[in-house]
């Protein structure tokens, strides 16, 4: 059995009276790719941010390679440095060029020398096929290119896991392909990923497991084939039917 990279147990996130994440437990092993999907507003993004400790959970535990991140004395900056995060709206550093975006954490968090950081940042840019755009600024790049830089930024530190929050849903349809291709490359390299996405053909191709999320809870988990043919839960059935109909229309 492969080592567990990330796990959470009975995770809750509550904002006042709103329960965004309700008692969620999950485990991801090394090299595994899991895909979370479900209706918008179902708490998927909040859940992902909890895992990355960008929003501390209200209750429950998160483990990264056996270290409990939810301990009160944990160094959150160090914990976050071990997790890659890719945002739906990309959120590159606007004042830095592509190389600068990727380099920043290598220099200031990992404290690599200038040359080492440059070397490694260029390596990450090569992995997303953006090495020729290293000196371009975010505003000079297309959405798809920006998101590839966003992926390189998450990748460069060689994190234990990369969490991706709908990495293609803010992009124009014709730009999603290049981002999906990049993710496919990462999948081939065995990078552990937890992805929130509704890119179903991609999910079918790379995901070991799909997780259907609704109303802050995991409703059903299983291999992609089961979701595409005959999911157990009524809610998942209905959601898949809608998704597939929409994809066909596109």
């Amino acid at each position: 059995m492969k080592d567990t990279i990330m796990a959470c147990q009975n995770l809750w996130k509550v904002y006042g009276k709103i329960v965004a994440v309700k008692d969620v437990s999950l485990r991801i092993s090394e090299g595994e790719i899991k895909l979370i999907f479900g209706p918008s507003g179902s708490g998927k993004s909040t859940f992902l941010r909890c895992l990355a400790m960008l929003t501390p959970p209200t209750k429950g535990d998160i483990f990264l390679k056996g270290d409990r991140l939810t301990r009160s004395d944990v160094d959150l900056n160090k914990a976050r440095a071990r997790i890659g995060f890719v945002f739906q709206h990309i959120w590159l550093f606007r004042h830095l060029n592509a190389l600068g975006n990727v380099e920043l954490a290598l220099r200031r968090v990992m404290k690599l020398t200038k040359d080492e950081a440059r070397e490694r940042a260029m390596q990450a840019l090569r992995e997303v096929k953006m090495e020729d755009w290293a000196s371009h600024y975010p505003a000079q790049l297309s959405g798809g290119q920006q998101q590839r830089i966003g992926i390189a930024r998450a990748l460069a530190r060689k994190p234990d896991i990369i969490l991706l929050d709908e990495p293609t849903s803010a992009l124009d349809p014709e730009l999603t392909g290049e981002v999906i291709d990049t993710l496919r490359d990462l999948a081939k390299k065995g990078i552990t990923m937890l992805i929130v996405s509704h890119e179903m053909p991609f999910a079918r191709e790379v995901a070991e497991e799909m997780i259907f999320f609704d109303e802050g809870m995991i409703v059903e988990t299983g291999p992609p084939e089961r979701f595409f043919t005959n999911p157990d839960s009524e809610r998942a059935k209905r959601f898949m039917a809608r998704l597939i109909k929409r994809t066909r229309r596109d």
Partner: peptide, 12 residues
């Protein structure tokens, strides 16, 4: 967004 992005890469 820039603060969240900064924290996400491990910056304080």
């Amino acid at each position: 967004d820039q603060m969240t992005a900064g924290l996400s890469i491990g910056l304080s």
